[in-house]
């Protein structure tokens, strides 16, 4: 087994680790930092995959992902958090150790579910499909368990990271056009959500979902 493959496996493991760290994190600022780390791991693993396969468009993808997810979106989110003045999330809906155990169960499930898929794929890092799938499930879990709207957005963004990771591990990356489209969508989405948050807060005085949901009209 070659060294780049091993490094990709290690990065995949780190990707999963960051997903778990996000699940257990209480502070919004740390959550954003973790998101940036996840982006770093993602960009690095795409770059190594590019080196391993000699596929030049993957380099572009790595740079694009890096710029967007290490620099642009975290900066945007930080600004948003500062201006909305939401540094802290309330405690998550379920106790953290319980969340961890649920997450562990999801990982076991995802690993098992991914075994046949990984068998079908022929890319160098097809073993990491399970990790990508697990990260998808963990991001969803995070979105379910968080009460603050901004944390949910980060969960959504982590979900998108996991999907890109899954795509690169199964097929060696999507066509360039789609990647650009997705990147554009994400950045526009973050902008629009930011605008929405301001409006929501003006109307409801809060960004906590349970309060927003409590309103009848």
């Amino acid at each position: 087994m070659t060294h780049p493959t091993r490094i990709i496996d290690l990065l995949a493991a780190l990707f999963l680790l960051v997903a778990f760290a996000m699940l257990s994190q209480r502070r919004l600022a740390n959550l954003i930092t973790l998101y940036a780390w996840q982006g770093t791991v993602l960009a690095l693993s795409i770059a190594i995959l590019a080196y391993e396969t000699g596929n030049t468009h993957l380099y572009a993808s790595a740079i694009l992902n890096g710029l967007l997810k290490i620099l642009a979106i975290p900066a945007l989110l930080r600004r948003l958090a500062r201006r909305l003045d939401v540094q802290w999330d309330r405690e998550s809906l379920v106790q953290i150790p319980t969340v961890m155990l649920i997450g562990l169960g999801l990982v076991i499930f995802a690993f098992n579910a991914a075994l046949p898929i990984a068998g079908l794929a022929h890319t160098v890092n097809h073993e990491t499909v399970g990790i990508a799938l697990a990260s998808v499930l963990l991001s969803l879990l995070m979105m379910i368990l968080r009460t603050a709207a901004l944390s949910q957005v980060i969960g959504f963004l982590a979900l998108e990271n996991s999907l890109i990771f899954a795509a690169t591990s199964v097929t060696g990356g999507m066509p360039m056009v789609i990647e650009f489209g997705v990147a554009l969508d994400v950045i526009v989405g973050v902008f629009i959500l930011g605008v929405f948050f301001f409006h929501i807060r003006e109307q409801f005085d809060s960004l906590d979902l349970d309060r927003i949901e409590g309103r009848e009209d």
Partner: peptide, 20 residues
């Protein structure tokens, strides 16, 4: 310590998945 435990278990699972 729960997080330490979780990390260790993840290591075990990852080993099973990627085979090393």
């Amino acid at each position: 310590l729960g997080i330490a435990f979780l990390l260790a278990v993840l290591g075990l699972l990852v080993r099973y998945l990627v085979g090393h």
